[in-house]
Computed example of a mutant assay.
Amino acid sequence: MTETGSARDLRDDLSFLLARANALSLASGNAALAAHGLKVRSYSVLALAVGGGRPSQREIAEYLRLDPSQVVALVDELQRRGAISRESDPNDRRANVVVATDAGRALFADAEKSAREAEREIHAELDDAERDVLVRLLGRLAFPGSGEPRAG
């Protein structure tokens, strides 16, 4: 595609640039995580479980901005694999929290190496200082206001 008309205009459109960068990042992440039987979404759920915060499925859905039914399917898959377990929330017996198993922590440790390598490759155009600025700015956009919410 040439840089004429709307294509040129899109290079100055922040929403388009964020969407395109996201699509490229997701494709790279999914390819890297495939060797571990994961995708970016399931890896993200596992990361939250490994973090030790004991998030509920509702908290995971809110944090990842996914429909709760999507989170149920992701948690079901990770539970079938023995990577996580659902435990009763001691503060609310009607809710379950998601907890990583030993196998899940090992899977995450291996997958995290692949995810970080893919991230380095997809962001190779940025030096460390630029990457740090981008992380800080995207963090402000992703979690506006008083700071980043925590799952769990």
Rank of each mutant, 00 (worst) to 15 (best):
T4I: 14
V45G: 10
G53E: 02
N30K: 10
L18V: 00
A21W: 00
R80W: 12
E119I: 00
R150N: 07
V71I: 11
S56K: 12
L38E: 01
R131T: 08
A34M: 13
A129V: 14
L26K: 00
L137T: 07
E87Y: 00
E59F: 10
E77H: 15
E59P: 15
A109K: 09
G104L: 10
L46D: 08
Y63K: 14
D127I: 04
L33C: 07
R80K: 15
L48P: 05
G82C: 11
D92K: 05
A21P: 00
S44F: 08
R120G: 09
D67T: 10
R80F: 13
R136H: 06
E130Q: 15
Q79W: 10
H36C: 13
V99G: 08
E125N: 07
V133Y: 05
S6R: 14
P68C: 09
G139I: 06
L24N: 08
A21Q: 07
D92R: 02
R131P: 06
L134V: 06
L74S: 14
D102M: 03
T2G: 13
A35G: 15
T101V: 04
R120K: 13
A27L: 07
R116K: 14
L26G: 02
A32C: 09
V40M: 05
L17A: 01
M1N: 11
I122V: 12
R86L: 14
V98L: 15
A103C: 03
N22Q: 14
M1R: 11
R120W: 06
A83M: 13
F143M: 06
V98Y: 12
V98N: 05
D76M: 11
R20L: 04
D102F: 07
D13V: 00
E117N: 14
R94G: 07
D9A: 14
L18F: 00
L64V: 04
G53P: 07
D110E: 15
L48Y: 04
L38H: 04
L138E: 07
D127Y: 01
A31T: 15
N96H: 14
S69P: 06
D9I: 06
G29E: 03
A111D: 02
A7F: 14
Q79P: 09
R11E: 08
A95T: 10
R94E: 08
R94A: 11
A49N: 03
E130M: 13
L138T: 01
R94V: 02
A151Q: 01
E121H: 11
S88V: 11
R94M: 05
E3Q: 08
N91E: 12
A21Y: 01
G53I: 06
L10I: 07
F16M: 05
V71C: 07
N96R: 15
A61Y: 05
A129L: 09
Q79D: 15
K113H: 13
E130W: 03
A19N: 08
I122R: 07
A83K: 10
V99N: 10
F143Q: 05
A47K: 10
A47G: 10
L10R: 11
S44V: 09
A103L: 11
L17S: 02
A106Y: 02
I60W: 02
F143S: 10
R150G: 01
S114P: 03
D13L: 00
A83T: 05
F108E: 05
P149M: 11
